[in-house]
Each structure stands twice: as structure tokens, then as C-alpha cells.
Design a protein around this nucleic acid. Structure first.
Length: 852
RNA sequence: GGGCCCGUGGUCUAGUCGGCUAUGACGUCGCUCUUACACAGCGGAGAUCCGGAGUUCGAGUCUCCGCGGGCCCA
């Protein structure tokens, strides 16, 4: 059967996508094989699988397919991290409502419906990209089967004292009206104004005069002699008139403003620190919606901005505010809506952070690349307080707790009651006080509470399956080290006292072709579907493999994608040529066959090592180099004449070609699932994705065979170059070619050169003279150190004939120096005489070509 | 302000333990449509490795300073 000339990726990718059975990639819970569980990142179901996801999934799929072929029992699950604000916002937008216009349950259902639709769309993209996902281990965090586990993890940690409820300052987004975690706070540079105020007998500087009503103390540096006499006295707060203490604290910067700061509850994180340390009272001036409270007197009900304007005006008139200056300041903002955050003291749920546990567990995990570990270490321990896990939203996992209507006591659910929604059901037992009336907790969990048990979930935690933690691999982007990686380590340690995974593999961010972050406004946005349509999945996957080193940022490049489809066409041509020739009948190899097989087995060894180290770019480049340069450009050219002929040499070439294509196809399978499956279907009756990864046959890796083959290749290349330089066609016949070497067989060279080749031994009748001496700096430098340079120069200017004996003597700076031949190489020059011949030199072998 | 990474031909990129004329791709120039492939083959040109200082016999590689970029954070 003849293959079509062009590789039709569209038809072939479509064909295999519809042929493959999901069951090929199922994890076997009862397998004897070593397990390889991947803790796949559950994407947020926006409906679109973006290119950053696609890169990450390519990495995962390379590993999954490779490990399967290496005999591992692989789980490549697919999760969906459903909960969160973006879906709530989208639902409000799509339905033209606000969440308060419908019941909680109704609103939740709208979110579920939208998410379900989005997941369905994204599943299609995943299939099209050829990912070998284990759909039997799909999980959806909004399903009761998953969020029940999230709730169970909450209950377990609560019972162990890892979770507690407390009135504590939290980061608060007044627009989203919810508490948020530190990981959700972004810092942006903003211009602000520093206001100088007469503060009783002192002057203070503040950027937040609207918080004057919340002032609970004034602080100075203990070493600041200007103010020492005021320490421990009281001052009256202007406008509001309440009295506050003057305290001394080292962390006050005496050079900032007047050197006196006011402490408010709460202007920023530093205020919280002082508030805790000096046991200051609490004055709430801002409510949950960002409006001024009753203690703000005439400003009550205003937004913080309005209040700021108003109070500044009033203080100017009253002569309290005497100076203003511009100040660059970094302001914390909500990462979702960019609204500046407030710090409010509210009753919230917290998870205890034990930095030491996290750092120790992180050390047990292998980080690829290793330097990424530092990012986690730097983040751990910088948090000012524990992880706030309660959110004042709707579409999220409900916190399984109630408050007794009588005594107000908190009742947390028992594990066996889960899953449940406390706003829909009551606890099946009475409160300690005897009351059976409860109010369900309306707060919900931070979505990271869902996703931070993904590793536990896929490893069989709380199921009828065995618990297989730790998983083997966590692939993720470095942008979520401080969140997903951090929280997963925390939870795995707290719940099971184990590391969640053996290895964490970090991928970089995908940048647009202009080198900037992809964004719609920059117009450098590319979606995987577009690439798929133009060049197919296998070409896209090649970009992912070779576009950059694992862990570093990678620029999307159409050039790489196009180069990918060209490589497919090249491979296709190789196979198309080979198909009528290959045979699985062994025959005695010729030198060039052995050369190819040695190179091939060396390649297999290299690929295995590099895949084990997650170096996809290097693996793929090695395979491509072999296929293109060694197999296509050299071996096939050299073996052609045998293949066209008859006899033993032909059968050897047929068998060698078969081995090469079979091996190459299996090496390519993790990267090019569609293409390799198509090729394999022409040579074997099974799926390449169920075939074993090639094993290097060490006995075929042979330096001598490679040297012989290399010489044949070089000699052929020299003849080709000769033709090219002389403007001859490559199949032009040369009149007389003589090769002087110890080689026994030049038939492949003759075939490739399309000329008769006469093998001769010895050397032709040339005169050979030493022409130059080349210093070996590696030896000279070590031996002669600082004099190496002058000795090298002397060597180069010495008469080369003097070195014929293998050693040379000369004088440098009056000193006699003797060098043996480890210190230099003698370059020889050949003098031709007589006939009109061209001489090509390949190492020590000479090709003599008669001129016509 | 701190941490991490990066700066190599026109563009992107490789470069281990410092060691001779720095890898590959795309582009470019010349030749060749050779019974797999012109989306190809063969050959060529093109880089004082961001700047400066230092260590060293020797630095793209190590150290320090500077400039520029990216990311994570305060």
C-alpha cells in the first residue's frame, strides 16, 4: 500500500481521536505494577482551555504516556475546580440579576448549570489535544462526592485543633464583601498623599486621615529624643476628642513624616502587629461594605473615600491639617477586582499554619527545577496571621457548622453527616444546652480548601480504594506555588502526616510572540483551538516540548509550530519511503547498519535519562536530530543502493530500517500521539500507546562501529560537498574515486556517490610534512601556569619539523623547555605532485578524485 | 525595598566540571527538482556571548558592581 505524499494531520488526528478507547488510559487500582499518580491541576471551568493550561497538560501527557510505556500504572486524572467568585459574577451578568435577588439555593443552581456547560466544552479541547486522561478518575469539586471530602477534611482538622474560629483582623474586600487570604492580596503602586496633623501636643503624619476615628494609640521610636517625654502620656485625638496613649516601639521609623504615627484599627498590617503587641483596644470605623460606622460621627455612612475628602476639608479649615505631600505607596488590593482592601476584625475561620512542618515537608519533595523550592520557602513564614478560610460568598463548599439559637455555641458537623449544607439542614442532635434550634453557618470555604486536597482525593483518600499517598507527581505553574502547592503541603501534612507527592514539576508562563504576557489588550493572544485548526495537535505539542526549558517561561511561536508540522512531513516522507522496504527478518548487518543501530541505542539511552529528568526539550531535540540528520540525511542515502538491489545487504538494510522506524515511533509516542499511532498502525497490530518504551541494547552501542560508520558518512559527505562545490548534480557520476583506508567495504559509499569506488590501502604517493604545531592548552596551562601563554607562543613559532620525534626542545626566556606530544598536536600538510587530481581529506583517510 | 530567574548571530535558543575556531532552529545568500521529502538536500555568510571591574595561565561559564527584562513577594 502506498502512503499519500502529504501527511494529512487533520484527517489522521480526527481518526485516532475517535478510535481510541478511554479505557486504554484507566488507572488500575488492583495492579501489581508500580504506581504513578499525577496530581493534575483542576482548572477553573471558564469554558476555555487557555494556552498556559495547554502547555502544562502537554508536560503532563508527555510524562503520563512515557511512564505508561515504561510499565507504570499511571493515573492522569482530570479535576475541575468549580467554586469561586468569577462564576458568581458571570451568572449575575448572564441572567441580569444580583445574587440577592434570588434565593441562595437558586443562585447556587445557576452557578452549577453554567459550570457544567463550561466543563463540557473544555473536555472537548482536552480530547482534541490528544491528552491521555483517565476519565474514570475525573472529579468535580462542586459535586457532593467531592465537597463532602472537603467538608470531612474541615471537620477532621477542626477536631484536631488545626481549625479554629476567632475574631481577628482579616484582609477584607469591601466590593466583594468577603474576607480574603494573603495569597489573594496583590500589591500595586499608587500615588497617595501624606497628611500632617496637629495632634494635641504632637504632630503626626498619616495617609489615612479617614481612620482618625479608629485611632487607638500614637507611637514613637523609643530612641527618638524629640518625643521621649511624651511616652506613656495621653493625647487627645483631634476632631473626635477621645484620648489615646503615646507608646514607644522600635519599628517606628523616626525619619518618616514627623516620626510620630497614629495606630488605627486597622490601617495596615503594621497596625495589626502593634495592636496585638501593645494589647490596644478595638475601634471599628469601617464596616463590611466599606462605609464609615457610627463612631465616625458626622462622617458615618460615607464611603472611605468620601470621608477622607470631607475630613481633610474640615481639618484644613480647623487648622489641624497643616501640610500635605505626595507619597508613592504600595497598596494591597483584591486580586480579583483590584479594589483596595481593608483590614477588618471579624469572626472568621482559620487554619493554623505551622511554618516548620511545611518547610520540612517541602524538603522531602523533589523540586524540578530545584530553585523553585526557594519561592515556597520565602513565602512560608511571611504571613502575619493564620490562613483565613471563610468567605462570605455563595458558590463554594458550605462550612458544615451551625450556631445554637439559644446559647450561641458553635456546632461543627460530625463526619458521618456529610455532605451537607447547614443552611438547608439542621444537625441531627441537640446542642449541649438542650436546644434543637440552630442557625446554619452562611459563610463558605475558600476554594483553596477544595483544591488543596486534590492529591489526597486522587490517591484514594476517604474512598473504598486503598490510600496510595504520596502521589508521584504534582505538575503546576510557578505562579501558584504560594497557594496551591503551599496549601496542599499544609493539608497533606495536617491530615495524614505525609508529603503529598514525591516530585513537583513546575512549568513556566506562556508569553505572547512579543515576549509579553498574553492579554487581549496587547493583541498577542493565541488560543489552542486556533493552533489546532492551523497545524494540528501534534505540531502544537512539539512547540510545548521544544519551546523552552522546563520551568522557564516560554514564548508562543508560530514558527515553532510550523517547524513542528514540517518535521511531521519529514517523518512521513521517511516512513513513506521505508514502508515498501522494511522487513522484520534479521540478516547480517553491514558496517553502516551497525553504525545506525549504535546511534539508535545511544539515543534510546539518552531519551530515557532525559525523560526521567523531565527534560522534554532535550529529549525531543535528540529524537528530531536523529530522525532528520542520522536516519534521513545519512543512513537512508547510504542504504538506498542496497535497498534497490538484491541479496543479503538488502535484507540487512530492510531489517535495520524496520528496527529504526519501530524504535523511533515508540520514542515519539509520548510527544506525537496521533502521528506515532498512525505510523505504528502500518507496522504493528497494536496501539503504540500500549507498546513498551524502547530498551537500549547496550551490546549494540559500539564506539568502533560508530567510528567506522562515521567515516563512511564523512567520506560520503566529502564527496557530496565536492560535487556541490563543483556545481555538479548530486547523482553525477565521478570518473575515478580512490579511497585510501583500511576499510573493507565501500559499496554504500559507491552507491550514495553513484560512482565506482576503488579501495586502496597505504598512502598515495604524496609527500607529507609537518606544517604547524598546535599547543594543547589544557596540558600546558596546568603544567606551566602563568608561563603557559609565552610557551604556547614559542611553540607555535617553532619549526614544526623539529617535532617529528614526538617531542620538541626550545628556549623560552632563557630557559630550556622540553615538551612531549601530549602538549601539542602536529598539523600535517600534504604536498601533491604530478597528476591532476583532487584530494579530499577526512581525518587520516584520503579520497583521490580524478579530474576529467 | 527583598527574593528568584534571565540578558549569546537579524529573531528565538543550547552551552555540564571554567580549556582551543560557541549549539540548533527560523530568516538570509548560492547551488541542486538526486526513483521519500523543494514543508527537501548540499554549501556559505552572519556573534568582540548586555556594560564594567575582579579571580585565573585561560571566563559565555565563577565573584562583585551597574544597566535592562520577567516573575514572586513586602
Amino acid at each position: 500500500m502506498e502512503l499519500p505524499k502529504e501527511y494529512d494531520y487533520n484527517a489522521i488526528e480526527e481518526k485516532w481521536m475517535n478510535t481510541w478507547q478511554d479505557s486504554m488510559f484507566y488507572f488500575d487500582w488492583n495492579s501489581e505494577k508500580p504506581q504513578f499518580i499525577i496530581d493534575t491541576p483542576p482548572p477553573y471551568p471558564t469554558g476555555n482551555f487557555h494556552i498556559g493550561n495547554a502547555l502544562n497538560w502537554c508536560y503532563i501527557d508527555f510524562v503520563a504516556r512515557y511512564k505508561r510505556m515504561r510499565g507504570f500504572n499511571v493515573m492522569f486524572p482530570e479535576g475541575w475546580d468549580c467554586h469561586g467568585l468569577p462564576t458568581e459574577v458571570k451568572v449575575e451578568e448572564l441572567n441580569g440579576i444580583t445574587k440577592s435577588q434570588v434565593s441562595r439555593e437558586e443562585f447556587r443552581q445557576m452557578c452549577v448549570d453554567l459550570t457544567t456547560k463550561n466543563i463540557e466544552r473544555m473536555r472537548k479541547s482536552l480530547r482534541r489535544l490528544g491528552f491521555s486522561i483517565d476519565w474514570s478518575n475525573e472529579y468535580i469539586t462542586m459535586d457532593p462526592s467531592y465537597f463532602g471530602k472537603t467538608q470531612a477534611s474541615f471537620v477532621k482538622m477542626y477536631e484536631r485543633g488545626n481549625i479554629y474560629q476567632q475574631n481577628h483582623p482579616v484582609n477584607w474586600c469591601p466590593r466583594c464583601e468577603t474576607a480574603i487570604a494573603f495569597a489573594e492580596v496583590e500589591y500595586d503602586a499608587r500615588d497617595t498623599v501624606l497628611n500632617y496633623l496637629n495632634f494635641d501636643k504632637l504632630q503626626i503624619a498619616t495617609t489615612r486621615p479617614e481612620l482618625l476615628a479608629a485611632c487607638v494609640a500614637v507611637a514613637v521610636n523609643p530612641d527618638d529624643v524629640r518625643y521621649s517625654k511624651y511616652v506613656n502620656t495621653e493625647v487627645k485625638v483631634p476632631v473626635f476628642g477621645h484620648k489615646v496613649k503615646v507608646i514607644a516601639d522600635k519599628s517606628v521609623d523616626p525619619t518618616f513624616g514627623t516620626g510620630v504615627v497614629m495606630i488605627c484599627t486597622f490601617g495596615d498590617k503594621q497596625d495589626v502587629r502593634w495592636w496585638v503587641e501593645h494589647k490596644l483596644p478595638l475601634r471599628k470605623a469601617i464596616d463590611k461594605t466599606g462605609k464609615m460606622t457610627g463612631i465616625a460621627g458626622k462622617y458615618a455612612g460615607m464611603s472611605t473615600d468620601e470621608c477622607k475628602k470631607a475630613i481633610i476639608e474640615d481639618m484644613k479649615i480647623a487648622g489641624i491639617l497643616y501640610k500635605q505631600e505626595k507619597l508613592d505607596q504600595n497598596v494591597g488590593a483584591c486580586w480579583r477586582c483590584k479594589t483596595p482592601i481593608e483590614i477588618l476584625s471579624e469572626r472568621q475561620w482559620f487554619v493554623k499554619i505551622v511554618a516548620e512542618d511545611i518547610l520540612n515537608t517541602a524538603k522531602e519533595v523533589t523540586w524540578v527545577p530545584d530553585y523553585m523550592k526557594v519561592r515556597l520557602e520565602n513565602w512560608t513564614g511571611t504571613m502575619e496571621w493564620d490562613w483565613c478560610i471563610s468567605r462570605q460568598r455563595i458558590f463554594a463548599t458550605p462550612i458544615p457548622a451551625w450556631y445554637c439559637a439559644e446559647c450561641g455555641k458553635t456546632k461543627v458537623a460530625k463526619e458521618e453527616w456529610l455532605p451537607l449544607d447547614p443552611t438547608q439542614t439542621s444537625p441531627p442532635e441537640a446542642c449541649e444546652c438542650g436546644s434543637t434550634k440552630f442557625r446554619g453557618e452562611e459563610d463558605v470555604l475558600d476554594t483553596w480548601m477544595d483544591s488543596s486536597i486534590s492529591a489526597l482525593h486522587v490517591s484514594g483518600w476517604l474512598s473504598d480504594k486503598p490510600l496510595l499517598l504520596p502521589a508521584q507527581l504534582r505538575p503546576q505553574g510557578y505562579d501558584i506555588i504560594r497557594t496551591w502547592a503551599f496549601y496542599t503541603i499544609l493539608r497533606s501534612k495536617a491530615l495524614l502526616d505525609k508529603k503529598p507527592w514525591d516530585t513537583i514539576l513546575l512549568n513556566g508562563m506562556v508569553l505572547g510572540e512579543d515576549g509579553h504576557k498574553m492579554s487581549k489588550s496587547r493583541n498577542n493572544f493565541v488560543v489552542p483551538e486556533e493552533v489546532m485548526k492551523k497545524n494540528g495537535a501534534d505540531a502544537f505539542r512539539q512547540w510545548a516540548a521544544i519551546g523552552g526549558t522546563t520551568g522557564s517561561d516560554i514564548i508562543f511561536s508560530w514558527k515553532d509550530v510550523v517547524a513542528g508540522s514540517r518535521f511531521l512531513q519529514k517523518l512521513w516522507s521517511i516512513v513513506r519511503f521505508s514502508m515498501p522496504h522494511i522487513s522484520d527478518e534479521p540478516a547480517p548487518y553491514t558496517p553502516i547498519d551497525l553504525w545506525l543501530l549504535s546511534k539508535l541505542n545511544r539515543l534510546v539511552k539518552e531519551c530515557t535519562e532525559k525523560m526521567d529528568a523531565y527534560q522534554f526539550d532535550e529529549t525531543f531535540k535528540a529524537i528530531r536530530g536523529f530522525a532528520w540528520e542520522i536516519l534521513a540525511d545519512n543512513y537512508i542515502e547510504l542504504a538506498k543502493s542496497r535497498l534497490y538491489g538484491d541479496g543479503e545487504g538488502k535484507r540487512a538494510a530492510q531489517y535495520t530500517l524496520f528496527i529504526a522506524i519501530d524504535t523511533l515511533t515508540r520514542l515519539l509516542a509520548p510527544f506525537l500521539p496521533y502521528f506515532s499511532e498512525e505510523i505504528y498502525s502500518h507496522i504493528k497490530n497494536e496501539s503504540v500507546h500500549l507498546a513498551p518504551y524502547p530498551q537500549a541494547d547496550e551490546s549494540l552501542i559500539n564506539a568502533e562501529a560508530e567510528a567506522t560508520g562515521e567515516l563512511i558518512k564523512e567520506l560520503t559527505a566529502a564527496i557530496r560537498r565536492y560535487k556541490s562545490e563543483h556545481g555538479m548534480a548530486l547523482n553525477a557520476k565521478l570518473a575515478g574515486v580512490e579511497i585510501y583506508s583500511t576499510m573493507e567495504d565501500a559499496s554504500d559509499i559507491a552507491g550514495a556517490a553513484n560512482s565506482e569506488v576503488i579501495l586502496k590501502t597505504g598512502t598515495p604517493d604524496f609527500e607529507t610534512v609537518p606544517a604547524a604545531l598546535k599547543p594543547n592548552m589544557k596540558v600546558l596551562g596546568k603544567t606551566y601556569r602563568s608561563r603557559a601563554k609565552s610557551i604556547a607562543e614559542a611553540l607555535m613559532s617553532a619549526d614544526p619539523k623539529l617535532a617529528i620525534s614526538g617531542r620538541i626542545d626550545f628556549t623560552v626566556d632563557g630557559e630550556d623547555i622540553t615538551l612531549d606530544n601530549s602538549c601539542f598536536t602536529v598539523e600535517k600538510e600534504r604536498l601533491l605532485k604530478g597528476k591532476a587530481v583532487d584530494v579530499l581529506e577526512v581525518g587520516s583517510t584520503l579520497i583521490v578524485i580524478s579530474r576529467e
